[in-house]
């Protein structure tokens, strides 16, 4: 087990989370493989988004959240008191349901993270230019946008906006990219394009995706975790989970008996 441990980007142990009196996560212990796409599936309200939002601690925006347990990211417990949220979020990027580029230029969106995390004097123009080109190339937007780097990002098509939201994480060289239903606002073609992108990025980054769409989980993920009522019911290779679920609740869900 100790040799395998080094291949996990995220390891959680007995994570419990309450919103006020409501317990949204119950004893969640999962390991997320490094450099793969892992999907979190389950019916609405099962806690999958909550779990995702634990990994960059963005849950804590709301005052009444209490989290216990341990979430090791790169071997360090993200909930240790000495953890810097800023550094944590540099290592753990996030993509949201609705594309949310800032209403500034494409260029400034991509370098936003660098500007936040580095001293002004260290940001030479050549360095920023290079980061923009490299990141946009990684998400295959460079050819489309290289002549439009200074248009407002909110005027792009939704697919481009969502890819841009992925691109703006990359200059920070994140370990993990969390995706919260990243395609739910996109049409079929844009969804496929973003899925292709996930698969292309998977080797370099650990990707954790929350999805309502079981077919999408099958298309993009290597591992899949099924959650129900705040618990992780089953984690397995995606193909195994869908073909031979070990838990009857998983079987019921993937056969569409509820959710």
């Amino acid at each position: 087990m100790s040799t395998a441990a080094s291949n996990f980007s995220i390891q959680t142990r007995d994570v419990n989370l309450w919103y006020g009196d409501f317990q949204a996560l119950k004893n969640v212990s999962v390991n997320i493989n490094q450099g793969e796409v892992t999907a979190l599936i389950g019916p609405s309200g099962c806690g999958k988004t909550t779990l995702l939002r634990c990994f960059n601690r963005i849950n804590e925006r709301y005052g009444n959240v209490k989290t216990t347990g341990e979430i090791r990211i790169l071997g360090k417990n993200a909930y240790d008191p000495d953890v810097s949220l800023i550094e944590l979020r540099k290592a753990v990027g996030m993509v949201f349901q609705r594309p949310n580029p800032l209403p500034i230029s494409v260029y400034e969106n991509v370098v936003f993270g660098l500007r936040v995390h580095s001293a002004r004097s260290s940001l030479k123009k050549s360095l920023l230019d290079e980061a923009v080109e490299k990141s946009l190339q990684e998400v295959s937007l460079w050819d489309d946008l290289k002549d439009r780097l200074h248009v407002r990002a909110t005027t792009l098509q939704l697919e481009q906006q969502q890819k841009l939201c992925i691109a703006r994480l990359l200059p920070l060289k994140p370990e993990v990219i969390l995706m919260d239903e990243p395609c739910s606002a996109l049409d079929v073609e844009a969804t496929l394009a973003v899925e292709d992108l996930m698969l292309a990025l998977a080797g370099t980054y650990t990707i954790l995706i929350v999805t309502h769409n079981m077919a999408q989980a099958r298309r993009v993920s290597r591992e899949c975790a099924f959650m129900l009522l705040g618990e992780v019911v089953e984690v397995n290779r995606t193909q195994d989970l869908f073909l031979t679920p070990r838990d009857s609740r998983t079987a019921d869900y993937i056969e569409g008996r509820y959710g």
Partner: peptide, 14 residues
């Protein structure tokens, strides 16, 4: 929209 705030926070903004 809240997602604008969370987008910035998730990039490590204070």
């Amino acid at each position: 929209p809240n997602s604008i705030r969370e987008g910035a926070l998730a990039l490590g903004a204070t």
